[in-house]
């Protein structure tokens, strides 16, 4: 019965949750036929598709593979942002996509890749962290969180290999137990196999990232104020300018849509938790940024 805080294991055995050999009636209505059904079933189906069908699916399903998400350390922690555009081929299919997803009180996942997989990974991750805390009466460690995400990305490998469901996220968190004088913000970058690397000062991914990675490096090394020394407003203005730059050169990345008042999603992760910057504040920063 006790799954030692492992949510994936709990899901796998959810249809046999028992107390003293008696199956509970309450749980029987939430059968989980297999681990991560909404991920696994498409994976299984995709594996048997004829080659020509795979080709068709790869163009219709890869909605938000093209995108730009970026995270950087600033004075109080981490600032992390993503554009709002979702595309299918050369078409814009959605202009209010949320690609920066809070996972728990002090961590955020910024996704680039196939949205169905990415959102499901974020959802599983969120439930996994909550389940660990509730069942084991303590927060999952930073390393535990990183490994959980690694497992999910690795599980998604068949989809990634077929070119229809790769997910390359940035995972950022603030380690709350850190000494108050130390910036506890941490940024991790993943590859499609689930390996994670800590990026000390910044990370960016998605199709627009190639246009701004060099800029980030330049700002961090030779900028007037180093990224880590920026206050919230400076960091926000910088990150908005970066997204604007990416959108200038990458058709799949949207900038600020003044007509429809659609702003990028920008969140901060500090000692006090995850905070979403308001449109009003972003508007003020845009006035400074342009």
């Amino acid at each position: 019965m006790n799954h030692k805080g492992d949510f994936l294991s709990l899901l796998k055995h959810a249809d046999t949750l028992q107390v003293d050999g008696e199956q509970t009636q309450g749980i029987s209505e939430v059968n989980v036929p297999e681990l991560l059904p909404s991920i696994k079933k498409p994976i299984r189906d995709a594996m048997v598709l004829p080659t020509q069908d795979r080709q068709t699916h790869s163009t219709t399903l890869a909605l938000a593979e093209a995108t730009t998400v970026v995270a950087m350390r600033y004075k109080d922690g981490i600032i992390i942002a993503g554009d709002r555009r979702a595309t299918a081929g050369t078409s814009v299919v959605h202009d209010r996509a949320e690609k920066v997803i809070p996972i728990d009180s002090h961590s955020v996942l910024a996704i680039s890749g196939a949205p169905a997989m990415a959102f499901e990974i974020a959802r599983v991750l969120k439930h996994s962290f909550q389940y660990f805390r509730r069942s084991q009466l303590q927060e999952l460690s930073v390393e535990g969180k990183l490994r959980t995400l690694s497992r999910l990305i690795l599980d998604n490998l068949p989809m990634a290999l077929q070119g229809i469901g790769a997910v390359i996220p940035i995972f950022a968190l603030y380690a709350p137990q850190t000494d108050e004088t130390v910036n506890g913000g941490k940024i991790y970058f993943y590859d499609a196999l689930g390996a994670h690397f800590e990026n000390v000062d910044f990370a960016t991914t998605g199709s627009g990232s190639v246009w701004i990675r060099g800029v980030l490096r330049y700002l961090d090394r030779w900028g007037e104020t180093r990224l880590e020394d920026m206050d919230e407003q400076q960091a926000t203005i910088t990150i908005l300018r970066l997204l604007d730059t990416a959108s200038e050169y990458d058709a799949a990345t949207s900038g600020y849509n003044a007509k429809a008042e659609i702003f990028p999603t920008v969140k901060t992760i500090t000692r006090h938790g995850v905070e979403t910057l308001t449109d009003k504040f972003l508007n003020e920063c845009y006035a400074e940024a342009t």
């Binding site: 019965m1 949750l17 107390v19 749980i27 939430v30 439930h127 389940y131 509730r134 069942s135």
Partner: peptide, 18 residues
């Protein structure tokens, strides 16, 4: 502990499934 885990597990699975 046993019954706490039962109700926590059930709530967690239901929240994920629905």
């Amino acid at each position: 502990e046993r019954l706490r885990m039962l109700v926590t597990d059930t709530a967690s699975v239901q929240a994920f499934q629905s």
